[in-house]
Simulated assay, not measured.
Amino acid sequence: MRAKKRAEPSSEAAELVRLAKEQGLSLAGPDGLLKQFTKTVLETALNEEMTEHLGHDKNQAPPDRESTNIRNGTRSKTVLTVATGHVPIEVPRDREGTFEPQIVKKRQRRLNGVDEIVLSPNAKGLTTGEISARFAEIYGASVSEETISRITD
């Protein structure tokens, strides 16, 4: 049986771990780096989904647009992941209530496999198309390559 080749962590990830240790922040645990990173990735992904839904960045709506739908704050939600436990997140809302998030769907509380999605893409050097395909495979969610690109940036 062949041994799997282990992916090397990115220099950015190694630097985050080093800084966390310097500041006395645990990597796991209730307020650890992994939980904060998971929260940041989920909220960034949700905000990028909202940008895609509305067709413009926050506070950047063109004056001649046809739709009057705009961002309308956020709502708090707590999701449960295997590696990080309960993660409080802020989910964006739109004024017309037509936003249907895909990464964390409405009424969804348990995120199976999100830890793998959050931690692995850049470490494994996946393309935006491959990350999009993994979201579809694990969540059944359609997330465009453009949204993935904005999230990873």
Rank of each mutant, 00 (worst) to 15 (best):
M1C: 10
R2S: 15
A3C: 09
R6G: 08
R6I: 15
A7M: 10
S10H: 08
A14C: 12
E15T: 13
V17H: 08
Q23S: 14
Q23E: 15
G24V: 05
L25G: 00
P30D: 14
L33I: 07
L33M: 07
K35Y: 03
F37L: 15
T38D: 07
V41G: 07
L42H: 02
L42R: 06
N47R: 11
E48N: 09
E49Q: 10
M50N: 07
T51I: 04
H53C: 03
H53W: 03
L54D: 02
H56C: 11
H56I: 08
N59T: 09
Q60F: 03
A61C: 06
P62W: 07
P63M: 06
P63T: 07
P63N: 10
D64V: 12
E66A: 15
S67A: 13
S67R: 11
S67I: 09
T68N: 14
T68A: 14
N69W: 01
I70H: 11
I70K: 13
R71M: 05
N72V: 01
R75C: 04
S76H: 12
K77D: 02
T78G: 06
T81I: 04
A83Y: 06
A83P: 07
G85H: 06
H86K: 15
H86W: 04
V87T: 11
E90N: 14
P92H: 02
R93M: 00
D94V: 02
R95H: 10
E100D: 13
Q102D: 01
V104R: 03
Q108V: 11
R109W: 00
D115Y: 02
V118L: 09
V118Q: 04
L119A: 10
G125V: 05
L126G: 08
T127D: 06
T128Q: 12
T128F: 13
G129A: 15
G129T: 10
G129L: 07
F135L: 11
E137M: 03
Y139M: 10
G140Y: 02
S142I: 05
S142Y: 09
S142W: 05
V143A: 01
S144G: 10
I148M: 04
S149M: 04
